[in-house]
Amino acid sequence: MGLHLLEVRSLVGHLIGWDTNPAEGLDANARIIEKLHIGSAEVWITETVVNTWIFMAVLIILAAILRVKMKNYKNKPSGLQNVVELAIEYMDSFVKGSMTEKYAYFGNWFFGVFVLILVSNLSGLLGFRPPTADLCTTVAITLTTFFLIHFMGIKKGKGGYFKGYLEPLPLLLPINIISELATPISLSFRLFGNILGGMIIMAMVYMALGSLPGIAKIFNIGVPSVLHVYFDVFAGCIQTVIFVMLSMTFIKDKIPD
């Protein structure tokens, strides 16, 4: 039995013992680049994994360069320092607005999440398959949020955290637990569904444009770029903001003011 959890199709196919793809031509699944055998488990290196590694490398190098450049910062900002300060201040005010001044230190974590999701969502513009169009990426990011919600709830809320499950009636305990488990599901499926939906629509548009005859080929100019602005840039940015904002709201719900 292999570890077939690296993409949706294999996840669903694995659960029901069926693993082939009925829809030929338009393939929404991430391509498998390499199958590794670690012990008895089979680990799939998919396009998603490789793309995520690329973005991680780019972001880490960028962060290291910024760290070196910002060492000799000036009181009167100019050039690059302006851009960095703008980003940090925007994120700070975003976190303070959602989580109050006291928990502003969450900005350190959420800035990283924000940048990773944003880069992943916008990577469709460069021809990558967005890593967020794979359920594995979104579930992984969401699990960190899920862990944070309950870790911070227990650490800061103490007894109030457990008492919250018995409110308004102790009878409602199962429903409260189900609603806690629904949080990561809705969070991860929202991001995944939006990005995958946009990706599939773009793939279908490119298929349709590719089969245009004669003079109708004129539609190949401009039409895809307009749709990319909507499905990649607009939806990608909005979904990033929403993911981070909802994560912060869920954590804020569990900790006292």
């Binding site: 949706v8 196919g13 029901i16 013992g17 793809n21 829809a23 809705s186 499926f189 929202r190």
Partner: peptide, 23 residues
């Protein structure tokens, strides 16, 4: 939007990862 996304995910599973053909 979540409910709409759930519908979309069900449609995606039926189109690209159909579990019923295996039955």
């Amino acid at each position: 939007e979540s409910t709409g996304i759930y519908g979309l995910v069900v449609a995606m599973i039926l189109l690209f990862a159909n579990p019923l053909v295996g039955k």
